[in-house]
Design a protein around this nucleic acid. Structure first.
Length: 466
RNA sequence: GGCGCGGUGGCAGAGUGGUUAUGCAGCGGACUGCAACUCCGUGUACGCCGGUUCGAUUCCGACCCGCGCCUCCA
C-alpha cells in the first residue's frame, strides 16, 4: 500500500490513482541558463528513485519532466555572452543530459520544452481571458486576475489578504491588483518573442507548466513534483491557471523535495553558494552524490559538505567490499522476491513515502547476512546477493564495477599510476615470500601515505584508494 | 509580521507510547607475519519546562534555538 506525503493537505495519505494501475507524474525541471547544481541533482535523483521504485512495483508510470527554455534569465545570460538564447539553452540542456547520465538518471517519458508549446500557452491564456480569469492591460501584458480564483493560496497556505500587502508592484506593470501575475509579457520586436493575439511577446513564468501538463498528461493528473521553493508562487499559480482554464481538479498529490544546505543556509542561485554537479564530479564518483541524496529522506533538508561526501563514499565502500566477491551474480528477478523477508522490509519502507534511508538500512543488514553466510553457505550468500543487487537497481546505486569504484578514490592527484602500484605490490609479495617483512611493511606504508590501501587475502593482494 | 518545517548517541540519519534502527568514526576481541577487509562484542541518544499516562524521545501545552516560503531560485 503506497503512502505519499501530500503538500496540499500536509499529511501522509494512501495513494489512489486516477486510473487503476497508472500514475501520471509531472516534475518541474530546469530553467536552462546554467549548469545543474546539487539542488537540481536532488530533485532529479529523488524522482528518479521514486519512478524506478513505482515501476518495480508494477505501476505504469508516465513521467514527464519539463525544460523551461524561455525566460528572462536565459535572455539576460545570452545577452551577456553574446550568444543566441536558443543556442545557450541548448548548450545547458546538453550539459544537463550529460550530468543526468553520470548520475544514472533514467530519461522521463516526455521532456517537453516551453518553446515547443507556444500554441498551447497562447490557447490557455486566451481561455483564461474569455472566462474572465485574465485581462489584457494597457501595455498589452496579460495578467491573471487572482481575486477571481477563490481557492488561491490552497497549496502554500497563504492568506490572500496578507499577500495583498506584501506583494511587489513593478512600475511597468498595470495590474488591477498587486497579487495578479503575468501570463503574457509583451515585448519589443527584436527581443525573443512570439506572435500572439496581444501582439508580440513571451509567456510569463508558470503558464508554460500549465500548458505542458495539459498537453502531456491531460487536465487532471496524479502527482506533481518539484523543488522546495516551488510551492509558492509557481505551483500555486499553476493551480490557479489550470483549474480556472480547465474547470477541473488539477493535481491530486503534490510532492516537494527538501532543500540542500551549505553551512546551514539553503543552496541557491541568489545566495551564490551553490556547487555545480560537474564540479563535484571532479573529486567524487557520481554515485557518491547519488548515495548522499538517497541516504536521507527526500523531504528533509540535507547538508552539503566535504565530510558528508566522505561519509557517503565510506558507506558505498561497505557495499562494494562485499559486492566485489560476487561480480558474476545477476540481480534477482523482482517477481521471484515476493517471499523474501529483506525485500518485504525494503518495499514496506519505500511504500511509506519513499523512505530510502530505511531501505538502505535493510540493504546493510543484507550485507552482514551475506558476509556471514559466505563462511558456511556460499549458495545462500549468492542468493541474497542477487536480491541485494535487485534492490540496488531500484535505488539506482551500486551499478559500478566494484574494483574500479574502490580503486577510484578521490583523484589521481598523488600521481601514482595503477601500473606503479601493481609493481610495488609485486615487489612486496616477493618480500613476503622471502620473509622480508620490514620491506613489505615499508612498501605498504609508502603506498598508504599516497592514499593507497593494500588488502591481502587468499586470492592475493588487492588495493584501493582511500 | 504571516504561514510552515525541524531540534535524536562523537558525526550522519530513521523510527517508535514500554523491546537492537542503520551507516561512519571510536574501543575490546577473532582473523592476519603486521595490517586492511570481514565477523563478534561494545554506547543509560532523544532541546528545555510542565501536563496526560502504570509508563513518553514518541501524545498535548508553553518556552528556547535553527531553518524554509512570503521576491528570481530545485
Amino acid at each position: 500500500m503506497l503512502k505519499i506525503y501530500n503538500t496540499l493537505t500536509r499529511n501522509k495519505v494512501i495513494f489512489t490513482p486516477i486510473e487503476e494501475g497508472k500514475i501520471r507524474l509531472y516534475v518541474c525541471g530546469m530553467t536552462v541558463y546554467d549548469y545543474c547544481h546539487i539542488g537540481h541533482a536532488r530533485v532529479l535523483v529523488s524522482f528518479d528513485v521514486i519512478v524506478r521504485f513505482l515501476r518495480s512495483q508494477g505501476w505504469e508510470v508516465e513521467y514527464v519532466r519539463n525544460i523551461t527554455d524561455v525566460d528572462d534569465k536565459i535572455i539576460n545570460r545570452a545577452n551577456e555572452s553574446g550568444e543566441d538564447s536558443a543556442t545557450l539553452s541548448q548548450r545547458f540542456i546538453d550539459a544537463m543530459h550529460e550530468d543526468e547520465a553520470l548520475l544514472n538518471i533514467q530519461s522521463p517519458n516526455q521532456e517537453p520544452r516551453a518553446t515547443d508549446h507556444m500554441d498551447n500557452i497562447i490557447a490557455m491564456v486566451t481561455t483564461l481571458i474569455n472566462k474572465g480569469y485574465a485581462y489584457v492591460a494597457d501595455n498589452n501584458d496579460v495578467y491573471y486576475r487572482v481575486s477571481r480564483f477563490e481557492d488561491y493560496g490552497q497549496l502554500s497556505g497563504k492568506n490572500t489578504e496578507e499577500l495583498l500587502s506584501g506583494a511587489r508592484v513593478d512600475i511597468r506593470e498595470l495590474k488591477e491588483d498587486p497579487r495578479d501575475f503575468t501570463l503574457w509579457k509583451s515585448c519589443k520586436e527584436q527581443e525573443v518573442s512570439w506572435q500572439s493575439p496581444w501582439g508580440r511577446g513571451r509567456p510569463g513564468w508558470h503558464i508554460e507548466c500549465s500548458a505542458m501538463t495539459k498537453s502531456c498528461l491531460g487536465a487532471s493528473f496524479d502527482i506533481h513534483g518539484g523543488g522546495p521553493d516551488l510551492p509558492f508562487p509557481h505551483h500555486e499559480n499553476e493551480i490557479a491557471q489550470s483549474e480556472a482554464a480547465n474547470g477541473c481538479k488539477f493535481v491530486n498529490y503534490w510532492m516537494h523535495a527538501g532543500a540542500v544546505r551549505v553551512d546551514g543556509e539553503k543552496m541557491s542561485k541568489s545566495l551564490g553558494n551553490f556547487f555545480t554537479i560537474r564540479d563535484v564530479f571532479k573529486k567524487y564518483h557520481p554515485e557518491v552524490i547519488r548515495y548522499l541524496i538517497i541516504s536521507s529522506h527526500y523531504r528533509s533538508h540535507i547538508n552539503y559538505s566535504e565530510d558528508n561526501l566522505i561519509e557517503a563514499k565510506s558507506g558505498l565502500e561497505r557495499f562494494y567490499q562485499t559486492l566485489k566477491h560476487y561480480t558474476d551474480v545477476e540481480p534477482c528477478d523482482i517477481s521471484l522476491m515476493v517471499g523474501s523477508t529483506f525485500y518485504g522490509k525494503f518495499v514496506e519502507a519505500m511504500n511509506d513515502d519513499f523512505n530510502t534511508r530505511v531501505a538502505l538500512a535493510v540493504m546493510y543488514d543484507m550485507v552482514k547476512a551475506i558476509n556471514t553466510a559466505a563462511k558456511k553457505d556460499a549458495e545462500d550468500a549468492r542468493g541474497l546477493m542477487g536480491e541485494l543487487k535487485a534492490m540496488a537497481g531500484i535505488l539506482g546505486i551500486l551499478q559500478s564495477d566494484p574494483i574500479l569504484f574502490l580503486q577510484g578514490g578521490d583523484t589521481n592527484e598523488e600521481g601514482l599510476s595503477s601500473g606503479r602500484i601493481e609493481a610495488l605490490i609485486a615487489e612486496r609479495i616477493q618480500a613476503k615470500v622471502d620473509k622480508h617483512y620490514a620491506r613489505a611493511d615499508e612498501i605498504r606504508e609508502e603506498l598508504y601515505q599516497k592514499g593507497v590501501l593494500l588488502e591481502d587475502s587468499h586470492e592475493g593482494t588487492s588495493w584501493r584508494r582511500k
